[in-house]
Design a protein around this nucleic acid. Sequence first.
RNA 1: GCUGACGUAGCUCAGCUGGCAGAGCAGCUGAUUUGUAAUCAGCAGGUCGUGGGUUCGAAUCCCACCGUCAGCUCCA
Length: 664
Amino acid sequence: MLAGSPSDAPPTTLVLTLPDGSTREVPFGTLPREVVATIGARLLQASIAVAVDGEVQDLMTPLRKSGAFVVLTDKDPRALAVMRHSAAHILATAVRRLRPDAHIGFGPAIEDGFYYDFEVAHPFTPDDLDAFEAEMRKVIAEKYPFVREEVSLSEARKRFVDDPLKLERLDDFEGSDEVISTYTDGPFIDLCRGPHVQDSSYLKHFKLLSAAGAYWRGDEKRQMLQRIYATAYFKKEDLDARLLQLEEAKKRDHRVLGKQLDLFQLFPVSPGGVFWTPKGTIVYNTLEAFVRERQQEMFREIKTPLLYTKKLWEQSGHWGKYRENMFLVLDNETGEHDMSLKPMNCPSHHLYYASQRHSYRELPIRYVTFDVLHRNELSGALSGLTRVRQFAQDDCHVYLREDQIADEVQLLMNFILSYYDTFGLTARLKFATRPAERIGSDELWDRAEAALRAALESTGRPYELKEGDGAFYGPKIDFDVTDSIGRAWQLGTIQLDYNAPERFDLQYTGEDNAAHRPVVIHRAVSGSFERFIAILIEHFAGAFPVWLSPEQVRVLPIAPDYNEHAEAFVRRLKAAGIRAHLDARNETLNYRVREGEMQKVPYMCVIGRREAEENTVALRVRGTGKKQEILSADAFFDRVVNEVRTRALTPMADASSDVSEVTA
RNA sequence: GCUGACGUAGCUCAGCUGGCAGAGCAGCUGAUUUGUAAUCAGCAGGUCGUGGGUUCGAAUCCCACCGUCAGCUCCA
């Protein structure tokens, strides 16, 4: 251990180990730039930052510890964040030049780019963004070096006397021995830890994307700043690829495809409510039937009321924390709004469980419910199908003994992951612990977190820890799936709950003939059907696998002479439960094929003279163009029936199929 | 809820600084009888989100409200 040794006096000499195994001894406080310069001038030019003992720092920050010394060029993924952070400063430099009154907030690099927050009297317009972008190019051309200075708190306060947001940030340093540093590029100075690129010319390929409000320090009670989102890459191809990706993502946006494929509608008179069209309803019902089928053996489905008095919500704990999110309903007799549409199924299940006596032999008991739920989300939070006010979950509550937790978590996890697998979706696991606002004693939380974590770890699957992200009644495992635009959506969840059993006085009779408390596990697989369908639409770009497609087969007779033959084939498919339709309209074959493709019908069977005589079909598979195959009607029939039965992922959703051709 | 942008025919969108509301597709009618992504012609279709205001005159300018979108906050 060379660095961070507990001795008070810093080492006077540092030992750097280069990737080739050689070592350099340099005085404490040497600048990395000096070390890199001794390795090579071209390397110095190409270097974005360095990593010392795995920690990224820039070339202007004095070396304070020994260890492995790696120069990061633009080939290292860690360099990208450094460059983007510098890009944020360059953005601020440009904004300050054009809007000297702008106060600066924070400007970090984020996953796909960077942003910077400004406090301004007049919010930015799209024209402003263009102007800022042009100004940034000037700043880049100036080739301003990023100059790092380490200053005292009082000196820092002097430098940012005109920036109230920075002064507030500086208050955090009071009494701390953290190094305070500033970075200056040309006319712009910022309070910043770094690291940064050497000078502003290292930013080359960037694009300002949008401006939107954002609360100072993420606190809705504080003032709203103007945030500019942008992205930057080392290579032009990467930037172009990213911009193209954003364009493509727009085309497979479930709101766009939902309209083109006529799956659902939203009406202004029901904000956050979804109208499922006939086609969308088929998708919805097919999914629900799928979950039902899977849950047939070990689960018991029940239906429960949607409306309850506040007594239930007081008992469950929702009335206190969650009331503003519930739709309250007027009780005519009391004149009070003391009833509510249920925002979740848990209390209904607990109520039912508690209504009967249960033996330890019965456990685990699993109740599932697909009832409609209402949550009064903020109007600004609503979005397509992914954020609605009325939805349904494939909701399950398991009542079990504490010693059954590990097995049950394993079972539920396998259930959820294999469900996603049916759609070709992969999930990332998150383990979320107690939030700040919660019910139940710390002791209960200790037990719940320990039990769930042990169960999770026994599965051997990798997971990410999210401190403080648990439900207000218990820790949880979340299953996140990433959509085509790169947004991660939480779908499934497994939540361990020691609180509800207390609040609802849930019991079972043990082997010892005494009353015991069961544990409750909350489980959802799809999250909500609404959101899940949104993700499926984007995941498949609207080209659902056969079993999920609203229309599975479209039969196209070439001319009226073959209508009868085609119709008989449609009848045969329908009798087998296949969603088949005849398109014998008075239009050219080209026209009808085009429409079938745009509607993303998986299979189109063309029937003309040859096919009618030989009892075959000329099969056109969605997205494969003219590569038609001729096969016997029987063979096609068997193929489709089989694919539906096995829920095969065929015909493969072709992500490259040209969705841009789709017009209404 | 907050900040900003947007709201014109079923859909996608034109409509510059105020001066008679447009196109393509879809729809309807007719012709055409079709071999793998748009056959041709004609017709019909709008309280320009809603309500106020300014003006001789408002889709266009102003105000309020509703909705949608990008974010923030929150979240399944």
